[in-house]
Simulated assay, not measured.
Amino acid sequence: MTTPKVDIYTKFGCGYCFRAKRLLDEKGVVYEEFDITMGGPKRDEMQARAPGARTVPQIFVGDTHVGGSDELAALEREGKLDALLAG
């Protein structure tokens, strides 16, 4: 079984983005980061994947939209993040 792909959409200077990436880094998670500071097609992609999302970070584990930094931290506190990351 392969682990799901992790995507995170961020903006330059975003403290919540830094916090989310730090948690993922501490867990040894390999993720792909998309900087949408200047908008562009990746911002459109983020909004298509998470309709109504206007803030960053937006985090996806496989096809699951986790949400932002607070939601990621809540999954960790509840002991659910490792299982999600494992697939």
Score class of each variant (00 low, 15 high):
Pro51Tyr: 13
Phe60Ile: 02
Leu24Pro: 04
Gln47Glu: 15
Arg49Ile: 02
Pro51Ile: 12
Leu24Thr: 08
Arg49Asn: 13
Thr64Gly: 00
Pro41Met: 08
Pro41Glu: 15
Leu24Met: 12
Ala48Lys: 14
Thr64Phe: 13
Asp25Cys: 02
Glu45Ile: 00
Val30Ala: 15
Leu24Gly: 08
Glu33Asp: 03
Asp63Met: 05
Gln58Val: 09
Thr37Lys: 01
Ile59Thr: 10
Pro57Thr: 05
Asp70Gln: 11
Thr55Cys: 07
Asp25Phe: 03
Phe34Ser: 02
Val56Tyr: 07
Val61Lys: 11
Val56Trp: 06
Asp25Pro: 00
His65Gln: 14
Phe60Cys: 05
Gly67Phe: 04
Gly52Thr: 10
Ile59Lys: 10
Phe60His: 07
Gly40Cys: 01
Leu24Lys: 08
Asp70Leu: 05
Asp35Pro: 06
Glu45Asp: 14
Met46Glu: 09
Val66Ile: 15
Pro51Asp: 13
Thr55Arg: 08
Thr37Asp: 04
Asp63Cys: 00
Glu33Trp: 02
Ser69His: 05
Asp35Met: 02
Thr37Ala: 05
Ala48Pro: 00
Ile36Asp: 06
Asp35Glu: 02
Ile36Ser: 04
Tyr31Leu: 07
Val56Asp: 07
Gly40Tyr: 04
Thr37Ile: 05
Arg54Thr: 14
Val29Tyr: 11
Glu45Trp: 08
His65Pro: 05
Gly28Trp: 11
Phe60Asn: 08
Asp35Thr: 03
Arg43Thr: 04
Arg49Thr: 04
Arg43Ile: 00
Lys27His: 11
Met46Thr: 03
Tyr31Trp: 10
Asp70Trp: 06
Ala53Gln: 15
Val30Thr: 15
Glu45Gln: 15
Gly52Met: 13
Gly67Leu: 09
Gly28His: 09
Ala48Leu: 09
Pro51Ser: 13
Tyr31Lys: 05
Thr55Gly: 04
Thr37Val: 06
Phe60Ala: 05
Val30Asp: 14
Ser69Phe: 07
Asp44Ile: 03
Gly39Ala: 04
Val66Asp: 11
Arg54Asp: 06
Val29Asp: 09
Val61Phe: 08
Thr64Ser: 09
Gly52Val: 12
Val56Ile: 14
Ile59Trp: 11
Ser69Ala: 13
Tyr31Thr: 04
Ala53Thr: 13
Val66Cys: 13
